[in-house]
Nucleic acid binder design. Structure first.
Lengths: 336, 336
DNA sequence: GTGTAAAGTTAAATCGATTGCAAATACTAA
DNA sequence: TTAGTATTTGCAATCGATTTAACTTTACAC
């Protein structure tokens, strides 16, 4: 590999010391403007490109944020990644992206990689099953700040940015109640998942606010498989007093539910409204879609997380602040 | 920022020189296995983490591939990115991802960034409007190999990996012909776009293979707006001999077309089949979907591009090989 | 003309790791 | 025992930039 032009080359050609050149390029105030100009002119002419590897090494700082997400194919994380990237770019940082694929082993390898590469901070959407936060603690102990997004970490030691899932759950349910429904089913996310819990809390809150009693038999934990959704709905529809509307953990679940109705209860299609989390642009092309969606601002989540990280990086040497938690508002979007 | 454990610390504790420690950690053959074991044991105990920044600097190699795509929200590029990542991981490389957002200025800033950071190679999906490849040439001239994906560069100096758009176009058209259609419309991509040209060539080839004359009035260049698609279809359907099937540049265009039929020609819905490029998992939820899709293996494209890059990196010091071009097969997927 | 402050420049150390070559040690054969 | 070889280990230079402290030069006041 050809080695490029270095400040040494510039110094030699101008009969200066390397320190002068370095300072000139960094706009150091102690360098006369004449010298500074000469240096910059030659640097430009020689097509000088600073060797960031050398700077990172010397400065012990990489201007890089690590970003760990389960899967970038998931639009939710793709938007979040864009948010992080946008914030980073503004500050002259860049982003090192890695996907855990919900694999804890891989996640830990990634964390190691980020430590080795001395990223200045990490934004992480922890993998679904993780309860042991030790690998992330390691980052903190080394002095690399971590901000979690989306999924709440089991330990409260971490900054956390997410959407306000409880309020979202409330909105989704409230919408159905206002449409006149009183028997609203909830297909909730896995028990251990805090996100699922929060949305469920919102569901209960909405019922309570409207004085509607909670019917436990209308709530079921489903994993994300189509089959499970179908079984749950079939059971509920066979109840003496079946639900007339459904709030699903997420839109894909709602779509599976609607597909189920089409197959086995065609009369209910279009009559029994669904709501769910997520914004899928493609919903526009569907004939039978959820009545309303709860949109999470994952782009803002990424932005916010990066901002939070920057403030941590800035205060790194200062006193340890306790973890901060931020909830971003959700938006109810009614589909025409 | 706390500085961590270095090989110097290890050397001191073991009364060895840093060179011995370094060699031991790198499994140098000249180090006795006893020494090697002692070093590794202590390294583990002290939680030693090599400083990659220092290694990058010294080795003049970063084990990092740069990846430039227009937008990671586009599943096509997300899959490609995953392919690149998968190949990279296998080789102990990692990926620095940046999005150009189809903005040439930003793209050039990204290229600069990659040079500054001394990535070992770049995989790039060049931005839509770019004709001037000079910024990419700069990478080559510095000795950083570049492999383009998806979009063909204007200059033949670059390695290029893409899907076989012409064959895909042929397949999409052939499928409709075999269904008995003889008047097949083609909504093609922008004139300047090589991808669009290739698919159109495939369309013409399929017609020719079946001895069907090309009717120019059944081909129209449309941008990606819904309106444009509607106008084009309206015009064609008003022809004396209207088309009975449509091959669209991509599935989203086909969906717009189907939506148009629903609105203005409901009798044609389900009768007039569409084909288009792209794989949208969500098609399953649609009532009226394209009859068949041409799936591009963008994941494989990413993989292949990374492999190509590795081989370039390996041969870097060797003789300059001329640019290689690889076309990956497309797959026709018939929707039930 | 001397003293002192201000301005401009530079020498040299440093960051953490790698590596060619020299040096030290152990081992073998005569 | 000694020369000769094989095996280990250490010395020191190096990568490209930054930064502290020291040094030189200039400017200005008295």
């Amino acid at each position: 590999m050809k080695r490029g032009v270095t400040i040494k080359d510039i110094a030699r050609k101008l009969n200066m010391s390397v320190s002068t050149v370095s300072k000139a390029l960094n706009n150091d105030a102690t360098i006369s403007s004449l010298t500074s100009e000469r240096v910059k002119a030659l640097a430009l002419e020689l097509n000088y490109i600073p060797n960031e590897a050398a700077r990172h090494f010397k400065l012990n700082r990489t201007s890089t944020l690590g970003l760990i997400v389960p899967d970038i194919l998931d639009q939710y994380y793709a938007f979040a990644a864009n948010g992080v990237e946008a914030a980073a770019e503004e500050r002259g940082y860049h982003v090192m992206l890695a996907q855990s694929r919900e694999d804890e082993q891989k996640e830990e390898r990634i964390i190691d990689l980020m430590i080795r590469n001395r990223v200045d901070g990490v934004v992480a959407a922890i993998s679904k099953t993780r309860t042991d936060m030790a690998p992330y603690q390691k980052l903190l102990s080394i002095g690399i700040p971590v901000v979690c997004i989306g999924r709440e970490p089991a330990t409260p030691a971490f900054d956390f940015v997410s959407s306000d899932n409880m309020e979202g759950g409330r909105l989704a349910t409230d919408f159905l109640i206002r449409q006149g429904h009183r028997h609203i089913a909830h297909l909730r996310g896995p028990e251990g998942m805090r996100t699922g819990n929060a949305r469920y809390e919102g569901y209960k809150l909405a019922l309570e606010q409207h004085g509607i009693p909670l019917r436990e038999e209308l709530v079921e934990v489903v994993d994300f498989s189509r089959e499970h959704t179908e079984v749950a709905l079939a059971r509920m529809l066979a109840l003496e007093v079946p639900p007339t509307a459904v709030f699903a953990f997420k839109n894909y679940m709602a779509l599976d539910g609607i597909a189920f109705l089409k197959k086995y209860h065609p009369l209910l299609v279009g009559v029994m409204p669904f709501t769910g989390f997520g914004n899928l642009p493609i919903l526009d092309y569907l004939d039978h879609k959820p009545a309303a969606s709860i949109e999470e601002s994952s782009h803002e989540m990424g932005l916010e997380a990066a901002m939070q990280l920057f403030s941590r990086i800035r205060e790194r040497e200062g006193a340890e602040q306790s973890a901060r938690s931020i909830q971003l508002p959700c938006k109810l979007v009614v589909h025409v």
